[in-house]
Write a protein that binds this DNA or RNA. Structure first.
Lengths: 200, 200
DNA sequence: GACAAAATAGGACGATTGACCTAATTATTG
DNA sequence: CAATAATTAGGTCAATCGTCCTATTTTGTC
């Protein structure tokens, strides 16, 4: 069965919201890109907020699916965390062009004072909880959530600057640094005298 | 002498672009906020791009001025770098509400495929060069620019997440971590065996 | 095949957008 | 004081926005 019109609309809107931003993408943009009329469009989504809801839910579902895959494919928590870090490289080209889909949407909605901002932040929460779980399994205990937030923030910063400067070398370099940081964290586990443990 | 109308427009536009975003801010918004007519507005700025230019130039000037002040007030390069890190706390409330002025503008313009994106990135360059110079003075040599970019990225990530989660505790915690990182970097200067030196 | 429901197309709406224009007012200058 | 330039106000324009509406076509069901 071919994808339903509703699904095609959400898929297209997802892409356009990412590439152009939510506000800058109009009904007509999406309808034209999907190849349907605006009337048909409105039959599936009553308001623009409805489409945004659909897009966010789609991203939530896709993200959960990706995290589940990493959970299965990764042999140990550290390898799984490295999977997370390496999306920066896997999606490097898109990130350099359009930034991080999660961070840029969250920022835009925050500025628009949009009610869906908290839903968009839910995408961050998905990564945060998943990363936290991995750190807990590594034995970081109470520090796990801080470590998760730390690495989440690092990724965001790398995405922002890689986008601003369109700099691939920086992106690759910082991914290495983040992996080194992870190794140092694990090496200092249970060794409070290690200065690198201060890194959260 | 009272601020000229042109200056008041730029000042207001600067604030509105930060709080609402560039695209979401209309001529009417700015004119109303300044308290002038749209006609008067158009006399000073022919197009919306003109205002954006004005705002970016204003930010460039203000940033240079701030960096100069840090240069004077800081007793040593490390203290100056800490001044940079601490803007996250000084501007914490605004950042939690609207994100980083530099990063969010750069991201938005990138998505809009706006020609002024490179000018906005110039704001990053200002910080980058200034930070690089501080690291050079500390004796980091060739690594200085990488370190500057690293800490610039870290700040961006902290701003993005503090905004997304409206989390002040995270912001304060990460500022501490960044300062610890700086100390570790300086401690490992000229000691290649130190693992923390890997942190770039 | 008849009939109801879902899907699609396309027009129309009021509002707002960036942009432009002219007229009136104010400031400046010779 | 006269003349010129700069400033300000407010109206107008076409285009586009999100939204809504009514037809027409397609699909599904008995």
């Amino acid at each position: 069965m071919a994808a339903s019109t509703r699904e095609r609309i959400i898929e297209t809107a997802d892409l356009l919201f990412y590439q152009q931003g939510y506000e800058a993408t109009s009904f007509a943009d999406i309808a034209t890109s999907v190849g349907i009329s605006r009337g048909n469009f409105y039959h599936h989504f009553k308001t623009k907020d409805d489409i945004l809801d659909g897009v966010i839910n789609r991203r939530l579902a896709n993200t959960e699916q990706m995290l589940d895959r990493w959970e299965i494919d990764g042999n140990d928590p550290a390898e799984r965390i490295r999977s997370f870090i390496h999306i920066l490289i896997v999606n490097g080209e898109k990130i350099r062009k359009f930034g991080c889909p999660v961070g840029t949407l969250s920022s835009e909605l925050a500025k628009l004072n949009h009610s869906a901002q908290s839903d968009a932040a839910g995408l961050f929460t998905l990564f945060r909880s998943w990363l936290c779980r991995q750190f807990e399994r590594l034995g970081f205990g109470e520090k796990s959530d801080s470590l998760a937030m730390h690495i989440l923030g690092r990724s965001q910063g790398v995405a922002t600057l890689a986008n601003a400067f369109d700099d691939d070398g920086f992106l690759i370099r910082e991914v290495d640094v983040m992996c080194d940081w992870l190794d140092a964290q694990m090496a200092s586990l249970g060794d409070p005298s290690d200065e690198t443990a201060k890194s959260v």
